[in-house]
Write a protein that binds this DNA or RNA. Structure first.
Length: 178
DNA sequence: TCAATGATGGGCT
DNA sequence: GCCCATCATTGAC
């Protein structure tokens, strides 16, 4: 689960961005001021601004010097729901953090968190206390123009909290966990 | 329900 | 200038 202060949410949808071989990855063109943290140590946050409007959160996932990260695309609100609703209007609970731009806004994550260490402190990713059995489904990535067909989007099968583009059930395959 | 569209700013050519 | 890993709103069915 993703925790920021008093707010927390169960991550239900992610996408992988591979780095130098992946044209959709910001790191594909190499190391620049912006992509510096993607080349840094794993477990840190890469936050960027998309369309001049929304902040998106990634977790750096490869060893230092090797680029690679995971975009957090959707989450199920767990605690601090009142605080989230204050930051972002949403009628239904399943619309509160059901997209990469929505969840950062709901949890109060912004560009100033770029480079933050997610393994400790008040802004972290931890194991949920008690996970029920679940299945992880796989599909192509969403909303990108390059390498769009790569099956690198992973989400909790059957979750009501996945993003709007989440109904790509055509290509989805599932793996079960418990 | 679903497709089309404008908002808006930083990074790159 | 142009692109962009998005979202809320609009308007047609």
């Amino acid at each position: 689960m993703l925790v920021h202060g008093t707010t927390s949410a169960r991550i239900v949808e992610t996408e992988a961005y591979l780095g130098l071989t992946d044209e959709a990855s910001h790191a594909w063109r190499g190391r620049t001021p912006r992509t510096e943290v993607i080349f840094g140590p794993p477990g840190h946050a890469y936050v960027y601004l998309i369309y001049g409007v929304y902040d998106c959160l990634n977790v750096v996932s490869e060893p230092e010097g090797s680029p690679g990260c995971v975009l957090i695309r959707a989450a199920e609100p767990l605690t601090g729901i009142a605080a989230m609703r204050k930051r972002r209007a949403a009628e239904r609970l399943e619309d509160l953090a059901s997209g990469p731009g929505k969840l950062t806004r709901a949890l109060g994550i912004t560009l100033r968190h770029n480079g933050a260490d997610l393994t400790r402190g008040s802004f972290t990713i931890r194991e949920p206390g008690q996970a029920e059995p679940f299945e992880i489904a796989v599909s192509p990535r969403i909303g990108i123009t390059r390498a769009a067909d790569w099956p690198l989007r992973f989400f909790i099968g059957g979750s009501r909290f996945v993003s709007r583009g989440g109904n790509l059930k055509k290509h989805a395959e599932a793996v079960n966990f418990s």
